[in-house]
Nucleic acid binder design. Sequence first.
DNA 1: ATAGGGTTAG
Length: 510
Amino acid sequence: MLAISAANSHFIAHLPASSNDPNPLAKPISNKPNHLQILKKCTHLIQFKQVHAQFIKTPLHQSNTYLSKLIEALVDYGELPYARQVFDQVTQPSTFAFNTMIRCYGTNNLGHDGIDLYIRMRHQGVDADNFTYPFLLKACSGLKQGKGVHSLVVKDKRFSSEIHSLTSLTTFYCSFGDVGSARLLFDSMPERNVVTWTGIIKGYVKQKRYKEGIELFNQMKNYGVEINELTLVCILSACANLGSLEIGQWVHEYTDRKRIFLNPKLGAALIDMYGKCGHIDKAYRVFKTLPCKGVYVWNALIGGLAMHGYGIEAIKRFREMQGNGIKPDRITFIAVLSACSHSGLVEKGKEIFHSMRKDFGIEPGIKHYGCFVDILCRAGLLNEAYEVIMNMPMEPNAVLWGTLLNSCAAAANVELAEAAMERLMVLEPCNDGNYVLMSNIYAVKKRWNDVARIRKIMKDVQILRNPGHSLIEVDNVVHEFMVGDGRHPCSEQIYDMLEKVVITIKECYF
DNA sequence: ATAGGGTTAG
């Protein structure tokens, strides 16, 4: 049964009777109650509970719209178990009621409960409708057990060509990285719209298959499918990761031409794209034009500044953001801490790292520790970095040990390098770079036996050395280079330029 | 009441 606490009934007993009182229970529930309107007036959890306590005695509480509104409201207040109690009191829940409950499980990452409820629904002979499978599939997001839903949808003639159910199925496959299955389904669909297209593009982008994502986007344009903000956000993310300035810029111009409003998420995606494509000035320009600068927008800018080595500027923006009443989140701290590490701001970095918990109530996660260790390592404070790694509240991963190993190579610190390497052989046994670094350190120290030992391990574990390579796109042509590669037609000029760059760097720092 | 959104340490 519903439990209304003593405090609550006290509250009911003393409700003022004046007619303009905002309290929904101020007016007694009349003979002809408009229960939906009463529900609409509720603004606090306690009021919803009280309203229901009154209605439970009447048949009204079985009404579909009433039930779904109440359940949704309760779930919004984080009262999902209570919402389920309300649901369970209904003697014959309709399809509508089941759909609502399943959807709430989905939005609260309780997929298994959603599946259980669906099974119960069918067990009780309640029929599914075209809303059921989109909700159920969203609940199944990331759960491979949900694959069975595919056959349920296909077997039912009503849904086997229905766009919402099928689109949900494709995004369901994407939710655990199976873009292949998503694509098969996508290609067989009788009808697709902007949501279907964006969903599959997002699937590719999430799997880092950026080129295929962009290819689909081009097809989408050719088919004349509508393109909206969400589509563009996905494409910008692909551009950012590919360094595809041209396409990214095209997107920017497109938003201009079509007068698409740069909402915070689209704005952040644009800033991120410009930052990652090397144009921090353009990122800045976009930033300035955005009318709403949410935390996403600030994060993208600070992250861009960090990447470009503008540490002081990043910290300035970090402060300015707070001055504007925007609360930094965990991503902000990753951005600002990496700004400190790339700019050698050790003291600032320490200060900000320690302020996370103290001033912002954000518990540092492993990535924050990663940045912090990087700050110490780049500053040459290897022992301090080692201490931090050893005393972290979580298990250090390969990134942490790799950071340390990298710096040990620069400083030729054998002891700490060995400590790091010992862990890396377990955490990342196939990473060729670690072995190469370790053997290089031994070589600097002229410890040839150890060099041979590492080489032997590499041979025994059959680690293939991956030659370093990089790609760059110029005028829509991708150029690829490998270590010591001389195949490029402009190879000679490229090496000449490289030498000049190295000389310039040396002049600056030595 | 249906399906799709950005940023994350070597």
